[in-house]
Simulated assay, not measured.
Amino acid sequence: MRQPEAALSPPELGAFGDTLAAYYHQESSSTASASWTDKTTFAITRLQSDVGLPGTSQPIPDEAALHVSIAIQPVPLGSYELLVDGREIDVPFIPALRTSILDLRSQIACTLDCGFDYVHYHLPREGLDEIARDHRIKPVETYRFGICEDDLVIAQVTKTILPLATSPNWSSQLAIDQFSLLFGAHVLQTYGGLARLPEVVTRGLAPWQARRAAEVLRSRLDGGVRLNVLARECGMSVSHFARSFRATFGLSAHGWLVRRRIEVAQDLLLTSTHPLVEIALQSGFSDQAAFNRTFRHVVGVSPGKWRRDHGRG
C-alpha cells in the first residue's frame, strides 16, 4: 500500500459527516448525529462511491472514539487494503452487511479500488464510558478489533435505518438519540469483553422530573429537542434519564412525543376543517406523508378515514 499523505487538520467534533468524507476523498455524506454529552457526538455517516477511492485515504487524527463500519454491498477480495499503526491488515472478502470495528486512537488509512457503500458509526469513548457507569460497571479500556464480523444486531439495525438516509426523518433528533444509546450498549457488551450488561433497577422519574420532561417535550412537538437537554433539565445522565423516562411513561421519549403529536392531530381533525397537510405541520410532523404513515401505524386507519368516521367530512 502507498503510504498515506499527511493528515488533515483534526476535526472539531470528530471523524464523521463531511469531515469523515474528506478523509476518504469524498465530497459529501449523509449524516445524522446525537449529542451524548456536551462535548461528544454519536454519529451515523453513509459514504458511497461508484469508482472507489482515488488514492490512499487521509489518516484519521487520533481520537478517543470507536469507528464501526458496515458494508452495504460486498467488497471483493484484494480490493480493500487497510493499514493500522503502520501495519498492513489481512482483509478477506467482505460480504454485504459485515461489520468492522476500529479504535480511532490508532492511525488508520486504507485504499479501496472498487465502488463501495458503507455506513459508519462514530462512538466517542466518553459516551460509552457513561453507559458503562450507568450500568454500574467500570469503563472499558480495550475494545476488540474486528474485520468482517458477522454481527446480526448491527446488520439488522443498519438495514432498518437505511431508508431514512434520504428522508426528513433521518434528522429526527429524539429517535436518533434513543437509537444511539441502544447501539452504544450493544457495542459496549459485544466488543468490550462483557458477557452481558448488568441489569439495572430503574425507579423512574421523580414527579417534578416527569412534569418537567413532559413540559419540554410538549413545547417542541416537532421533536427539536435533544435527549441530553431533557436529561440536563432533570439533573440526570442521558442513559439514566432514557431508562427512567421509559420506566415512568412506558414509552421512550420519542415514542411519547409521537403519541402527543397524534393526540394534537386528532383534536385538530375533530375541531377544524384544515387540510391534512396543515394539520400535519401543526402537529409537529415534517410532511403529510410522515403524518399519514405514523397516524396509520398508531391509530390503525388513515387520518382522512378517522376524520370521516368521527364526523368531519
Score class of each variant (00 low, 15 high):
Glu141Lys: 13
Arg211Thr: 05
Leu194Ser: 01
Thr202Cys: 10
Ala213Gly: 09
Gln178Gly: 12
Glu149His: 05
Ala206Ile: 13
Pro168Cys: 02
Arg196Glu: 15
Arg226Tyr: 00
Gly224Pro: 01
Glu141Phe: 12
Gln173Asn: 04
Val225Met: 07
Glu215Cys: 07
Val140Ile: 15
Cys148Asn: 15
Ile147Ser: 08
Gly204Leu: 05
Leu174Phe: 00
Ala185Gly: 13
Leu174Asn: 01
Ala213Phe: 06
Ser171His: 12
Leu182His: 06
Gln173Gly: 07
Thr160Ile: 14
Glu215Tyr: 05
Ala185Asp: 12
Glu141Cys: 03
Ser172Ala: 14
Lys138Phe: 06
Ile137Tyr: 09
Glu130Asp: 14
Phe183Asn: 03
Glu149Asn: 11
Arg144Cys: 07
Ala132Cys: 04
Gly127Glu: 04
Asn228Gly: 00
Glu130Asn: 11
Ala214Met: 12
Asp177Leu: 06
His135Thr: 09
Asn228Gln: 04
Arg196Gln: 15
Asp134Cys: 09
Gly224Cys: 02
Cys148Arg: 13
Arg211Ala: 11
Val187Cys: 11
Val153Lys: 04
Pro207Met: 03
Ser172Gln: 08
Gln189Asn: 09
Ala132Lys: 02
Gly204Trp: 02
Gly146Thr: 02
Val140Trp: 05
Pro139Asn: 02
Gln156Lys: 03
Val140Glu: 03
Asn169Arg: 15
Ile137Ala: 02
Thr190Ser: 15
Ser180Leu: 11
Leu182Arg: 13
Ala206Gly: 13
Trp208Val: 05
Cys148Gln: 13
Cys148Pro: 04
Gly204Met: 04
Leu217Ile: 14
Val153Tyr: 14
Ala213His: 05
Arg220Val: 04
Thr202Ile: 11
Val216Phe: 06
Ala165Asn: 03
Arg211Val: 03
Gly224Ser: 07
Pro198Lys: 08
Val200Gly: 02
Leu227Asn: 10
Glu149Lys: 13
Asp177His: 06
Glu215Asn: 12
Glu149Pro: 03
Thr142Arg: 15
Gly223Met: 02
Leu194Val: 00
Gly204Ser: 07
Ser167Leu: 14
Val157Ala: 05
Arg203Phe: 06
Gly192Lys: 01
Thr202Gln: 09
Thr160Tyr: 05
Leu162Cys: 10
Glu149Trp: 00
